[in-house]
Amino acid sequence: MPIIEMHMIEGRTVEQKQRVAAAVTAAVAESLDCSPETVRILITEHGREEFYVGGMTKSQRDALLEQK
C-alpha cells in the first residue's frame, strides 16, 4: 500500500486538493502497477510562518520579493 505525504502552504481549495490527489493516485497506481484503491495520500497544510525555504518563512520571502 503506497502512502504519499504532501506538504503545502495553506490556502488551496478543496477542489485543488482533490485534483492533485486524483492525479497523484493515478500516477502512483500506473507507476507501481497497483490498484488506485491501495494508494493513500496524506495532505498536511502549513501556515506561512511555518514554511521555511533558505532559512526564511514564506512571508519573509514574499516581502523580500516585493521589495525588488
Rank of each mutant, 00 (worst) to 15 (best):
H46P: 00
A26P: 01
F51A: 11
D33H: 09
R19L: 12
V39K: 04
I3F: 13
E49A: 12
A63C: 05
F51Q: 05
H46I: 09
L32F: 14
V20M: 14
S31Q: 10
Q18P: 01
A29V: 00
R40N: 10
S35C: 09
M1R: 09
T57Y: 10
E37F: 02
A22L: 11
H46F: 14
D62S: 12
E5I: 03
I9Q: 10
G11E: 06
V28S: 05
R19N: 12
Q60L: 09
A63T: 03
V53R: 13
D62P: 00
T25G: 02
G55R: 04
A63M: 11
P36L: 05
H46S: 13
V14P: 04
A21T: 15
Y52N: 11
Q16S: 10
S31Y: 00
V28M: 06
I4T: 11
M8V: 06
I4Q: 00
E30C: 00
P36H: 08
Q16I: 04
E10P: 01
A63I: 01
A63K: 10
E45Y: 08
Q60G: 04
Y52T: 06
M56V: 07
L65P: 02
V39T: 09
L64V: 02
E50V: 03
G54S: 13
V39W: 01
T38F: 03
V53W: 10
Y52A: 14
L42V: 14
E50M: 10
V20R: 02
E50T: 12
Y52E: 06
T13S: 15
A21N: 04
F51M: 11
H46K: 13
Q18V: 11
D33L: 03
H7A: 12
A22G: 09
R12K: 14
E66W: 04
E66K: 15
L65F: 13
L42M: 15
A23I: 00
V14W: 03
E10S: 10
R48W: 06
V39L: 09
I3N: 08
Q67H: 07
R61L: 15
D33K: 07
P2F: 01
M6L: 15
V24E: 02
E15T: 13
R19F: 00
A22D: 12
V39Q: 05
R19E: 12
T44F: 03
I4P: 00
S35L: 08
D62E: 15
L64Y: 12
T38W: 05
R48I: 12
I41A: 06
R19W: 00
Q67R: 14
T57R: 10
A23C: 01
V20A: 09
R19D: 12
A21P: 01
R40E: 05
I9M: 14
R48L: 11
V24F: 02
E45A: 09
E30M: 03
L42G: 04
P2R: 04
A23P: 01
Y52F: 15
E15C: 09
V24T: 08
V20D: 01
V20Y: 08
E15R: 11
G47W: 05
L42T: 08
C34I: 15
R19S: 12
D62L: 14
T38I: 12
T57M: 10
K58N: 14
E45M: 06
T25A: 05
G11A: 06
T25H: 01
M1A: 11
K17L: 07
L32M: 15
T13L: 08
I9N: 05
M56S: 12
A27G: 08
K68I: 11
E45T: 08
